[in-house]
């Protein structure tokens, strides 16, 4: 049994108190692995990630980070726990330059600031070339790289990514996803929400399927990739209504 980076237990959460979107959802993500969450639109995938990040109130259940209870963190203190979150859209500050976006995230890095900035630029060379341009002028793929770079700036142990490939060309999507995969080599654990189910399953280690705010199926990614039911529902087989 390898160690668990982050765990959600029986999460109940929603945007208004009377109307829970997540109804006792549980999941675990192993250290330095990619855990992917898939499911139909409106299943509550984004809500689950936001609940972990403290942006949606968890009314019951727990979030454990390396065994420590971090349920309902103040969103601005999330970084302190080693947690970073890349939102689904609007995930960079368009009116700031690329450099300013990164400087903002590195503002508390003290003496390490310039070395960490250089390390990020090495990882994402296109960002270095355009560092003095407004982030709003970047292409979709480059925006996602900037968003990931911003998340990495706080040296997180876990990154939550909400559909980083949405709206990208297949090539750019593949690049972003592969980069996420590579991050695990640095010991970072990734929780990834994805619509590109096939691509995601190919590079993920473990997969959870959510529908209607509940856990449906979960298992090793390769098993699900070969599972006929999953294939039928999610991998472009016959269209069946979500359970």
């Amino acid at each position: 049994m390898s160690d668990i980076a982050i765990e959600a237990r029986n999460i109940v959460a929603g945007y208004v108190p009377e109307l829970p979107i997540l109804k006792r959802v549980s999941m675990q993500a192993e250290t330095a692995k990619v855990t992917v969450i898939i499911g139909p639109n409106g299943a509550g995938k984004s809500t689950l990630i936001k609940a972990i990040a403290g942006l949606v109130k968890v009314t019951s259940g727990q979030v454990l980070l390396k065994g420590e209870d971090v349920t309902n963190p103040r969103p601005d203190q999330m970084g302190g726990y080693g947690l970073a979150y890349v939102p689904q859209s609007d995930n960079i500050f368009r009116s700031l330059t690329i450099r300013q976006n990164l400087d903002l995230l590195l503002r508390n890095a003290g003496a390490e600031r310039s070395s960490r900035l250089n390390a990020l630029f090495e990882q994402f060379p296109p960002l270095a070339d355009k560092q003095h341009q407004k982030a709003g002028s970047l292409s979709g793929g480059q925006r996602q790289f900037l968003a990931v770079a911003m998340a990495l700036a706080v040296n997180p142990s876990v990154i939550l990514m909400d559909e980083p490939s949405a709206g990208l060309s297949p090539k750019a999507a593949q690049e972003v996803l592969e980069h996420a995969r590579q991050l695990t080599a640095q010991g970072v654990s990734i929780i990834l929400v994805e619509q590109n189910v096939k691509q995601a399953l190919r590079l993920a280690d473990h997969c959870y399927i959510l529908a209607d705010g509940r856990n449906q199926i979960d298992g090793p990614a390769e098993d699900l990739l070969g599972d006929p039911v999953v294939a039928q529902i999610y991998l472009g087989g016959k269209r069946v209504a979500a359970p």
């Binding site: 990040a53 203190q77 999330m78 970084g79 939102p87 609007d90 500050f93 368009r94 508390n108």
Partner: peptide, 10 residues
């Protein structure tokens, strides 16, 4: 520009 993103940026 974006208070929520600012918040998750610490």
């Amino acid at each position: 520009e974006n208070p929520q993103l600012a918040q998750v940026s610490g």
